[in-house]
Design a protein around this nucleic acid. Structure first.
Length: 516
RNA sequence: GCGGGAAUAGCUCAGUUGGUAGAGUGAAAGCUUCCCAAGCUUUAGGUCGCGGGUUCGAAUCCCGUUUCCCGCUCCA
């Protein structure tokens, strides 16, 4: 099957079986926003729980937090989002290609610098040891000319950036005669800005209202609470703070289903450490996070690390964990060494001292941070897309038939046990209900009596239920049921009391966590 | 934002030169049925994305618009 088609089929399947719906669909939907349906929410909750328990419950030195989505506006100045999330963009009208205006200009400036450097290198080679670079710079007419050009443009550029002057950036590009790499023309649109943060008003009276932002990442809620948690929890470095929650980005182009949404959920852990130990901990968390992924058993070869060459404004080392989706390898999780950028900036902007006092060394310092940040929605799609299987099945010599099955890790499945009376009479439904009422405290169960047993099995396959039990007339006499396994279609006759033992190992979060 | 494609029942789609809206499948209720989408009966479900125009008459022709999907930037 063509991978693109598979991607579409999975999207259709998730809607048909109540995993994911387009937002406000009766009003034709809202671009890049999705709702989780009755099965989706269970799967999502299970993934979140797997993450939370592996972080908070299994690590004594990691504690949780649930910070508000609204934060003081200064937070985003300190974090760098106000400037970094305000990219000036420009389009070439001929090639239809979009560029960041500041990058076009920086490339242009770089080219002049390269030209100068080339001239110098040439001369240096020619004159050998007697070469005087400073003198050469001051006397060579071509270098002087280029240097002047550079200084002039550089000054204009810095000034335009500082004043946030979009017209000037546009004029700069025209004056510098920058051409599009694709079309080769200078036919540019105006420079426009897209603020990637959503804003709204705080305060009921409009005159008093302050512009506040919906958080573009959850991390800052952790940083601003660093001292609160550290002091009240008496935390000693190294320690971590974990949080899950919604974040919002007004992406210019948001597509590819739930891999890229305007409203998404992050699961983040910020690990605070002694400066100088960051590479050690960076490696530690890379390995640890990869182990978490692989424990789900989706296939080790489907994961890879991708190191960032270009680092974000806050990082000194960064990589992604990528998963092999039907549309290729895509980022699921990021692991970043954020240095002390955030804490020291919050210290600067708030005027409050944010430091950790190490009583053993008797010194105070601003901790460094290793961040692990995973997209819950992306993780959801990782699990779902990997589980989707179309296959031919054969049942005891009958003709081969197609079935669609979600081979979800049993511990994450929305429904763990389907309870199915073979027929609707002779007291079978009553017996089934009785079993279900007993089992529902330990497992997420679903009762179904409509349609033939085969049809019900297939419906459960489609939502990834790992176990079905069937109640028949013998059950009334000897308390045995047929248990049917999703992946193999095998059936077994077992005593009802043995169910928790047969299922338990596979569907329990505990067993999954023990692998870590 | 720019370019390309699409929109008819929950889903997949048909719909003749413009003449009262159709199939398959799914859904619900019932009958039957002792283990892998069986069969029978009944029922529900559509201002044909929306708005205008042409016409006696528009799902169909024309214009506009919205939304979705695919490419162009960034990222969890």
């Amino acid at each position: 099957m063509i991978q693109e088609d598979l991607f579409k089929k999975i999207i259709a399947h998730s809607k048909e079986y109540g995993f994911i719906f387009p937002s406000s669909e009766i009003y034709d939907g809202l671009s890049a926003v999705y709702d989780y349906g009755q099965n989706g929410v269970e799967l999502k909750n299970n993934i979140r729980r797997y993450w939370w328990e592996s972080m908070v419950r299994l690590n004594e030195n990691i504690v949780g937090l649930d910070a508000a989505i609204f934060m003081h506006p200064r937070t985003w100045e300190a974090s760098g989002h106000v400037s970094a999330f305000n990219d000036p963009l420009i389009d070439n009208k001929d090639s239809k290609k979009r560029y960041r205006a500041d990058q076009l200009i920086e490339d242009f400036l770089q080219k002049i610098e390269d030209k100068i450097q080339k001239e110098i290198d040439k001369a240096a080679q020619k004159f050998g040891a007697s070469f005087d670079e400073a003198k050469f710079r001051n006397t060579n007419p071509r270098i002087i000319e280029n240097q002047q050009k550079y200084d002039e443009f550089h000054k204009r550029y810095i000034h335009a950036l500082e004043c946030d002057d979009l017209k000037e950036l546009h004029q700069f590009i025209l004056d510098a005669e920058i051409v599009c790499a694709v079309s080769g023309t200078k036919n540019w649109t105006e420079v426009r800005k897209f603020n990637l943060m959503f804003s709204t008003q705080l305060g009921s009276v409009s005159e008093d209202a302050n512009t506040i932002y919906l958080r573009p990442e959850t991390a800052q809620g952790i940083f601003v609470n660093f001292l609160n948690v550290q002091k009240t929890g008496r935390m000693k470095i190294p320690f971590g703070i974990a949080q899950t929650g919604k974040a919002f980005r007004n992406e210019i182009v948001a597509r590819q289903f739930i891999l890229r949404m305007r409203e998404f959920e992050q699961m983040e852990m910020q690990f605070f450490i002694q400066p100088g130990t960051e590479m050690e901990w960076y490696e530690f968390w890379k390995e640890k996070r990869m182990k978490w992924h692989k424990a789900l058993g989706l296939g080790d070869q489907k994961y890879r690390f991708h190191d960032h060459n270009k680092l974000a404004h806050y990082a000194n080392a960064a990589c992604d964990i990528e998963f092999d989706f039907p549309i290729g390898f895509k980022e699921v999780e990021g692991i970043h060494s954020r240095t002390n950028f955030d804490l020291s900036n919050h210290e600067k902007f708030s005027g409050k001292k944010i430091q950790y006092f190490d009583t053993e060394a008797n010194e105070a310092f601003t901790p460094y941070v290793i961040e692990t940040s995973i997209g819950l929605d992306r993780m959801f799609f990782t699990v779902l897309s990997n589980a989707y299987v179309e296959e031919k099945v054969e049942w005891e010599g009958s003709a081969k038939e197609d079935r669609v099955v979600l081979k979800l890790p049993p511990a994450l499945a929305p429904v763990q046990l389907a309870v199915l009376p073979l027929t609707k009479k002779d007291g079978l439904p009553e017996k089934a209900r009785e079993i279900m009422d007993h089992m529902k405290f330990d497992f997420n169960c679903q009762y179904e009596e409509k349609d033939s047993i085969g049809k019900r099995y297939r419906r459960q396959d489609a939502i990834g239920t790992p176990f079905c039990i069937t109640i028949d007339h013998d059950t009334l006499n000897d308390n045995t049921v047929t248990i049917r396994y999703r992946d193999t279609l095998q059936q077994e006759r077992i005593i009802i009391d043995r169910l928790p033992e047969v299922m338990g190992g596979k569907v329990s979060m505990k067993e999954l966590l023990k692998k870590l």
